[in-house]
Design a protein around this nucleic acid. Structure first.
Lengths: 240, 240
DNA sequence: CTTGCGATTTGATCCAGATCAACTGTCCGT
DNA sequence: ACGGACAGTTGATCTGGATCAAATCGCAAG
């Protein structure tokens, strides 16, 4: 038994995979102690710089991960370069597409992040053996599906101002308490990324942001930090 | 044993739920004979007219269904009436949202359809008891998630012409062989529904359709029937 | 402190798609 | 055959957001 693992067990915390340790994600929470130990033996905690790719679109990835800290964006790009962010993931979400070899999208760290990486083969086997894990991942897939469909409404039918308000609301709601209260938070995305998430250009994102600022719904403390004095006012801007 | 069920067993086909019979969906294919018999005892085959609602947005539905025939559209509507279709489902897809009481979207028959309806409680129990079923539904959820994200790219980044071409391609690819070859098919959606799926107005849908017709990519045999002489040409219009 | 460079904001103009308004089927029921 | 009610098409015009073009900000390197 190596040092890192012994430390965890001896500390009295539940035996966890070596790299996730106490911070259980969608995966670790559904495993038995022995599975956790086995997964831990083959997993690796990795720091990822903002902007670097975790999985490339069209590639065959041989691993899955759990987000331990930070924000991950899921992107699709067209051959001519047009880009659409199709999802944001926060700790402790699972990143990967079970039951499919090739990824149809890329996963990229939006902020500096830490992820727990484990081998695809091993987890695929565990999913088959562990109904509770299957259930857990099924649950996350359904949650992501709900979010994707909600965003389809935003993309297809909301105005630019409503789109920007929707994004701010999403971030305010999902950002980690460490970096945010419900009324102030750091934007994990650049203006370009916001535009690619909302199906807009950076110019209209910028304009709508100053519009919301001038109407008193938000304060822009600095380029990445937003204060929302009254969440109800923000919610009204979404008109839903 | 009632007549309908005896007929099925005696015909030598695998014992199936009474109403689905030989046409197994995502659910029936994953159950044991005895489960199939139990589910069959509590399920009901229903004919649904085009346009009528299967599940209402915001309601607590006490049943799930399997599509046996026809096309079902999943809709979201905003308080002011703006509407977005967030998915199309074809036989033998499963309709419902496991693990959640209240539906965040409505499911409505786009064409005349037949569905196999079964009680929520019973299926929820079976999911818990039957890893294979969980796996099957997990698979469908992931498939829908992929489709939703692909459509997010369409909604956010494609032009009106590309959107309409994307829709035609989707229908050509998914329509049932009975009503379609790869190059000719019936549209399961009205112009209004197409507009609500693509985030456009009916007028631009109509204009882009005649544009595609005039450029020779499609023929409009009648308002609901499309012929695609060369699928590659259609695919080019999607630019992806 | 200055310079340089990428990110953001702001301004001026353009245009794809929305809106408004006829017009044309098509399919009823009488 | 006729009329009326929809569903779809086509045309004219308008506009929200895109595009093009400068500022301005922020910040790291010298």
């Amino acid at each position: 038994m190596d040092v890192a693992r012994r430390e965890v067990s001896e500390a009295g915390t539940p035996v966890a995979c070596r790299s996730c340790q106490a911070r259980h994600g969608v995966v670790c929470g559904a495993l038995s102690s022995s599975q956790l130990r086995e997964l831990g033996r083959h997993s690796l905690r990795r720091k990822i710089d903002a902007g670097s790719e975790i999985v490339a679109q069209g590639s065959e990835s041989s691993f899955y991960s759990n987000i331990m800290r930070g924000v991950v964006k899921l992107c699709k790009v067209m051959p001519d370069g047009r880009q659409q962010i199709v999802g944001l993931q926060f700790a402790p979400d699972f990143v990967g597409r079970p039951f499919m070899r090739e990824s149809t999208l890329s996963a990229e760290a939006a902020t500096d992040a830490e992820i727990c990486v484990f081998p695809r083969n091993l987890l695929d086997r565990m999913i088959l053996e562990t109904p509770k894990l299957q259930r857990s991942l099924h649950g996350q897939a359904l949650k992501e599906l709900d979010a994707a469909r909600e965003w389809m409404l935003t993309l297809g039918r909301r105005t630019a101002e409503e789109k920007v308000a929707s994004l701010l609301y999403l971030i305010a709601t999902h950002a980690e308490p460490e970096t945010a209260t419900s009324t102030a938070f750091d934007l994990p995305l650049s203006r370009t990324e916001i535009a690619d998430f909302l199906g807009l250009t950076i110019e209209t994102v910028s304009r709508q942001l100053t519009r919301l600022r001038k109407s008193g719904v938000i304060r822009i403390e600095n380029i990445r930090h937003i204060v929302v004095p009254d969440m109800d006012e923000l919610e009204k801007k979404i008109s839903a």
